[in-house]
Design a binder for these strands. Structure first.
Lengths: 340, 340
DNA sequence: TTGTATGCGTTATCAA
DNA sequence: TTGATAACGCATACAA
């Protein structure tokens, strides 16, 4: 490996002079600067970030941990985070926890040992608490995305899940739907809980009963086994006329199951969901969604994180910030108007 | 930061003893081992990978560079790479070049300075050559994915693009299509070139003319501006009865444009494409595709990479390996049978 | 404007 | 079975 000493020797200067040229610090004569530069090019020198990090105690590396790399919500969010990080001269690394606490724990280890300067985390759920405490204990600044974790105070970017879910339900009710079911993510996830609350609130505000057989709880993540959801659909009698899905993945999976049973959307069943579908949002049946501002989640979260890092060591710590982004109701064609 | 010396002091041993406990090397009495372990827990010690990498000259970190994090082909591939890396005790970091040479160059810098042990690269295209040469010059083992780059010899996992494209065309011809257009990625990308060749070959084998006005070249990546593609569609006279898309992104975008002009799929226009759509493969209109084994790309590529890393320093270097994975033709419902 | 000495946290080597 | 010392590649503080 070519080191700063190799450059120094070949350029007839000290290692320090080379270091100064690399970092543009101190005063260097143009002549030596040019000479050093030339030798660096010749030898294809690349500074060893490992050594640099060791002495500087910072890596200029940020980390984004998402829970489902197959979900357009998170990939769009990743693009936002990427752009914001780049703008501030940080590099960004990704990790994918797959909604698994175990993998999340693994990534926390990576993060800790890699000594990244900060982390953007979409936690797997409430049980992620020890992972976050671990980050906190080791003074790794982090910003939470999309999900709150009871027991930890921190900067966070959230969507207005309750409001969004309520609006989805009200939209359905306005179109004459009375039997509205919900398929949702795990209740150990704050956003899932809020979406359920919003759903229930929407029903109550319109004097509709909350039949718990119409609510099915599973995982937001990549679903391996759909037989349970299938059974749920079969058990519902009478069938609902509409289903609210807690996120886009669930909506897609539910639609597949319905289709397999000859139940078409929107003719035989209406479906709405949280989160848009990225590039696939305009595939039939043009799902009506409460679209979260995925890109902004990443972009604003990253800004908060970098702010937090830059102000590290400041006399008074800033109070924790919480950004709540509204969801946009995008009306497409997955809902049948029963009121006509 | 808690260091190995803090542990050593509190446990009344030397730093070396602590190091041995951490790494399970050398002979340690059970008593001291237990004592050291206890102190480590107490102080929440996490080894500093930065320091460790500096002395060991290896990071146990692998890198996966993809070109489009929004594309299910790459996210599925990423899952495969992740699984294979984990199996061998490596950690995996992701980067997203967005089909941009500039961002790719940036990530190469990250890779070089971060001293990762190896890289899986889906190159942006032929102009990626200098980036790969840079990796080679710095002895960073790498495996190419999905695209060849003329001028560099290395391990690589490819799809059989030419064969897949030809089969897509032949499928269309069998169903009575005669005017078949193609929208494709940049000709600076090997897989795009091969898909074009496969398309042309399919036509020629069936004595159909290759009208160059029926071929439109753009980018595989996130498309910002669709006006050019729109103009291409308008210019074609007569309209083709079918379009072959060089990848899934292009198929989706083309479909949107067609739909906006009132041209329905498959009734007014048939569409097929390379690459499946992940979770959205069963959205209407159920695209017929030449599905690549995305997960296998990642999994096998990662295996080759790790093999290469493990055998570094071996007397005789292994010859370069090339894996070509066939594409599976998945028939769904985006093609109209004109032959009936 | 340039150079010397030192330390970042860890492990390899050799000695005890 | 344990410990002292040096080294990994770089930047800070101070000296020249």
């Amino acid at each position: 490996m070519v080191t700063i000493y190799d450059i120094a020797a070949k350029a007839n200067v000290s290692a320090m002079t080379v270091s100064r040229v690399i970092n543009n610090t101190g005063k260097i004569s143009e002549k030596t600067r040019a000479k050093v530069r030339r030798v660096m090019e010749e030898l294809n020198y690349v500074p060893n970030q490992t050594a640099r990090s060791l002495v500087l105690q910072q890596t200029k590396l940020l980390f984004l941990l998402i829970t489902d790399i197959m979900n357009p919500f998170y990939t769009t969010l990743a693009r936002g985070a990427e752009d914001a990080a780049k703008k501030s001269g940080y590099r960004l690394l990704f990790g994918n926890s797959d909604e698994s606490l175990e993998k999340e724990a693994d990534y926390v280890t990576t993060i800790l040992t890699a000594r990244v300067d900060g982390v953007l985390v979409a936690p797997a759920g409430d049980p992620s608490l020890p992972h976050l405490e671990s980050l906190r204990r080791h003074h790794v600044p982090f910003v939470l995305l999309d999900r709150e974790v009871p027991g930890i105070e921190c900067d966070i970017v959230l969507g207005d899940s309750k409001d969004g879910a309520r609006r989805l339900v009200e939209y359905l009710i306005e179109r004459g739907h009375r039997r509205i079911a919900m398929v949702n993510g795990s209740s150990s996830i704050s956003s899932a809980r809020l979406r359920l609350q919003g759903y229930q609130e929407g029903l109550k505000l319109n004097d509709l009963p909350c039949d718990e057989r119409y609510v099915y709880e599973t995982s937001f993540g990549p679903l391996k086994d759909l037989t349970e959801m299938e059974q749920w659909i079969e058990r519902m009698d009478p069938l609902p006329t509409a289903i609210v899905a807690g996120n886009n993945v669930l909506a897609i999976e539910a639609m597949k199951l319905l289709r397999d049973r000859g139940i078409g959307v929107p003719d035989d069943m209406s479906i709405v969901c949280f989160d848009d579908l990225g590039p696939y949002s305009e595939s039939e049946p043009f799902l009506t969604v409460a679209a979260q501002q995925a890109y902004q989640f990443g972009y604003m979260g990253m800004q908060m994180l970098i702010e937090r890092i830059d102000e590290r060591g400041a006399a008074a710590a800033l109070p924790w910030k919480k950004i709540v982004l509204p969801a946009d109701l995008i009306i497409r064609r997955s809902v049948k108007d029963l009121a006509q």
